[in-house]
Design a protein around this nucleic acid. Structure first.
Lengths: 122, 122
DNA sequence: AATAATTAATTACCTAAGTAACTAATCGGA
DNA sequence: TCCGATTAGTTACTTAGGTAATTAATTATT
């Protein structure tokens, strides 16, 4: 499912990076722990991906009141390019799922969520 | 979906390795090209995974009539442990999908195949 | 028949994610 | 209050996969 990297490459982004940006746009500033839980991903994955996003100026990290935590937020740069990237990702997803009817898409989402739930309790 | 590695680890196997063994059991001896096409995976992935399987004595590779090709087949060791591993993988899959009814499982397979088909033509 | 084009496999380098072990900060109980 | 337990994040190492470039063998073309 990484064909989406094709749409992202013109913004010098990879799919894993985009999901973090999207997460921050949706939820506002978050700690890395919160991001990991929200995205169902381990913390080293978050660390790694944020490091690259920080290098390329898409996010910044400030230490919170709890000095262990690092609060992550989007930079101006990220906010500026967000709509364009978002649009091209959505276009790609529409294209990807174009052989499914709206009903089928809903079915699929439901089934995958059921499986994901099983996965969590183990 | 890598929770399956838990069942596999007692046989010192990883999920990617198991899919190659399963492929060979189902289809008999194959070239690496054939395996890559059958599994929808690139050839370097096959090379890498086979190397490890060869080291641990699960497969052997003989050069075919066409000297570019390497014909891969299961060793006695692989054939011997196959039933036990197969059973524990199946048990895991049943467990994984236990929240889906037989009808839902069929639905899911159908939907995923449709998407996979879209993915191929791109 | 000799050379050009194609093909199977490998190598090197990349993204993506997980586990285990570690550090530093915070919290809790004696 | 101080020391042990917990927690957030990082580092090191691993699986799993992809693309691009390379090598060696085969096929096609002139």
């Amino acid at each position: 499912m990484k064909s989406i990297n094709y749409e992202l490459q013109e913004h010098a982004l990879f799919s894993s990076q985009w999901s973090l940006l999207y997460c921050l746009k949706k939820n506002g500033s978050m700690t890395q722990k919160e991001m990991a839980e929200y995205l169902h991903v381990e913390s080293p994955t978050i660390t790694r991906t944020l490091l690259k996003l920080e290098e390329s100026g898409y996010i910044k990290r400030q230490s919170g009141i709890d000095k262990r935590e690092r609060v992550v937020s989007l930079t101006e740069k990220a906010l500026a390019c967000f709509p364009a990237v978002d649009e091209s990702v959505r276009r790609h997803e529409r294209n990807m799922l174009c052989r499914l009817s709206p009903g089928e898409k809903q079915q699929l989402a439901r089934l995958l969520e059921k499986i994901d739930y099983s996965e969590e309790r183990r």
